[in-house]
Structure formats: structure tokens, C-alpha cells
């Protein structure tokens, strides 16, 4: 049996603070049609299909080296699946 994955939203909730501002900006720059919702202390980013976090984009905005592991410090929650988590990027999508 195989089911074709229609694009469905995936997303991530991040802490809204100075540390994560650069990450949010990087995600906004690298993901078209991103939906951004602000709640007290939280910024929620959602997108149809897949959401990508690029190390290079984050480092460019932070002005310092940034390991993708550090994304864990910013993240409150997510939905979708981490289909890729490497040195240079993180990808959230549904597999099926």
C-alpha cells in the first residue's frame, strides 16, 4: 500500500528572545510562504511541505559559529518529522 503525501503544514515553536531572533530571521529568509504567529514568549513558524534551517544563514545573522545542535536551545515544540539533521542543515517534513 502506498499513499502519496500531499503537502501538509509542518512547523516549529521557538522561544521569542534575543538569542533566537537570528534563527527566526534565517528561517524567514530561507522558507517562502512562511506563516509567523506571535504568542507571549513564543514565535510559531509554520509552512506547507517542508521547513529548512540552514547553518550558514543562521551564522551569517548571528556573526558567530553556530552548530545545528544549538537549535535545541531555541525550540519549544515542533510538528512534522526531522527528516534531516546534519552539520549544515535541519529539515522538518512529513515522510508520508
Amino acid at each position: 500500500m502506498s499513499v502519496v503525501a500531499a503537502p501538509r503544514p509542518v512547523g516549529v515553536d521557538l522561544q521569542e528572545n534575543e538569542e533566537t531572533r537570528a534563527i527566526v530571521e534565517a528561517i524567514e529568509a530561507d522558507n517562502d510562504d512562511l506563516t509567523v504567529r506571535h504568542m507571549p514568549g513564543i514565535v510559531r513558524l509554520t509552512k506547507e511541505g517542508q521547513l529548512v534551517i540552514n547553518q550558514e544563514s543562521v551564522e551569517g545573522r548571528l556573526g558567530r559559529p553556530w552548530e545545528t545542535h544549538e537549535f535545541q536551545l531555541a525550540m519549544i515544540s515542533y510538528f512534522g518529522e526531522f527528516v534531516e539533521w546534519d552539520d549544515d542543515r535541519i529539515v522538518i517534513a512529513w515522510k508520508h
Binding site: 500500500m1 502506498s2 499513499v3 503525501a5 500531499a6 501538509r8 503544514p9 509542518v10 512547523g11 510538528f79 512534522g80 518529522e81 512529513w94 515522510k95 508520508h96
Partner: peptide
């Protein structure tokens, strides 16, 4: 997130 996202995935 779950009914319209995850459970569509687990349907597979």
C-alpha cells in the same frame, strides 16, 4: 497538527 498532520502520515 495531529489529526491533519501526523495521522495522515501514520495512515501509511
Amino acid at each position: 497538527q495531529m489529526l491533519n498532520g501526523l495521522f495522515k502520515d501514520l495512515e501509511y
